[in-house]
Design a protein around this nucleic acid. Structure first.
Lengths: 150, 150
DNA sequence: AGTGTGAGTTCCTTGAAGGAACCCCAATTG
DNA sequence: CAATTGGGGTTCCTTCAAGGAACTCACACT
């Protein structure tokens, strides 16, 4: 329900949750990524209430993650990812990766990812942009940044 | 509120949301990561309702992401990350990274990350585990996996 | 004029989040 | 040994969000 406002916290995780932390939001982005870009398509694919879908789409557009644009002379609209939204898909890929590793069970992962660059079916790993080595939660020290609360 | 059950969907993102998709859950994991491992500490740090914190902690323990263990002869408990939970922090790092890039504003990021391996303050990037090159949402083709719905 | 369709709105019901007060247990203190 | 303290929760009530079905609107096609 999240009545508490996460957007005002001095924490990038909380602020990100303010954008995609509500129920359904990540799945809506997944759908747009997968090519379900219209209201009816997303509603049918997810089985989400139309009221909630309207709210979520408006919120994602307000936050600059999606863009609403007409595709017909009739009042018809589709939702497309902005650059900000495309980069947000990294979070979804990390989620998908973890779900594949820990929740897929006997049946195996529901979706596979073929990397265009090498042509292989592969997974993602977090790497340091500086040295290129693996960089996970245990490999870093947290320091106060310039935008830290006083 | 999420009365819809995401856990049963043939989608690793939805299944991951079934574990950490409820309000507060990612922030609770962040706190445990940052060293706030006891009920009172987390409650005070987040300002979350005690009732909801109890529910969330129980849920995370049930899903094997946290472990509840005594640290005193009195009935005192702390919550620690399991291996499954540690790997889930990748998702939080991706969120923090995106928030730093798009939501930090003038003040700059609230937290910086120093990579132990190279000693530099750095960011994370998604790379292909196979070839090591950058691998984002636009760099992959989605294929049906063995666990796909029929 | 009548029909169809995409894209929403309205309205009612159910149930989750907020929040304050209360409870339990074991160790310490007087 | 009674009283106190403090961590770790429950209980209960209020408020507001999610589910879901029905309804509306704007434009194009027949």
């Amino acid at each position: 329900m999240q009545r508490t406002d996460f957007g005002g916290m001095a924490c990038s995780i909380a602020r990100t949750l303010d954008v995609i932390g509500e129920p359904w939001s990540p799945l809506i982005l997944r759908d747009v990524w997968a090519g379900f870009t219209r209201f009816e398509q997303i509603q049918a694919d997810l089985g989400i209430s139309r009221k909630v879908l309207t709210e979520r789409l408006n919120h994602l557009v307000e936050r600059g993650v999606l863009e609403r644009r007409p595709y017909d002379r009739r009042p018809r609209y589709e939702y497309v990812l902005t650059e900000k939204g495309i980069q947000l898909l990294d979070v979804l890929m990390a989620m998908a990766n973890w779900g594949d590793n820990w929740l897929a069970g006997e049946a195996g992962p529901p979706v596979l990812y073929r990397h265009h660059a090498c042509g292989e079916i592969s997974k993602v790993d977090l790497r340091c942009t500086h040295c290129g080595e693996s960089m996970h939660a245990g490999d870093v020290e947290l320091l106060q940044g310039p935008g830290a609360a006083v």
